[in-house]
Amino acid sequence: MKKDIILAGVGGQGILTIATILGHAAISRGWQLKQAEVHGMSQRGGDVQSHLRLSDKEIHSDLITMGDADMILSVEPMEALRYLPYLSKEGWIITNSNPFVNIPNYPDVEDVYAEIRKIKNHKLFDADAIAKEIKANRSMNVVVLGAAIKHLGFSKEEIEDTIKAIFTPRGEAIVEQNITALNTGYELG
């Protein structure tokens, strides 16, 4: 089994937290992982992506081969489209619909949605609004993750355990917020 996931967003939106949770869950299964991150100049409000590769066998390349990704998991709708060359024919796009507008020429958001809807396997929802509704404003990324996990072959319990393991040092309240965010996202998946 292998899962190749492109995580996409804008610098500072928390895609590395998603990578940490999924990576931790994979390791708990005894899987291997490679995770290519972006550091440096691009982090300053530019587009960022992470190649996350999980497998029960040896992984060679740190980069995902174009046309091979099982999923584009994005916290920003236009950023989800930027990595389409990587998506496999049966691959999923799971993305937040709330645009992050920090450039003057951001396209009409309805056009962005139309392009996402052209992809056979997609989930498009306002993860920011959902996070706000459940009073977990800072867990937008975990809502998006929640919607993805069944399509990645993980059980909800596995990810819950991981969230507990990772966030417990930061306090019960943070753990609870993230579990709620995960469950709410899961229902959308």
Partner: peptide, 19 residues
Amino acid sequence: DKYGMDVPDIVAPRPPALC
């Protein structure tokens, strides 16, 4: 040489910027 789909034309570049 595998390839997914082209990036739609509407996708605008998002260069880094001062915070």
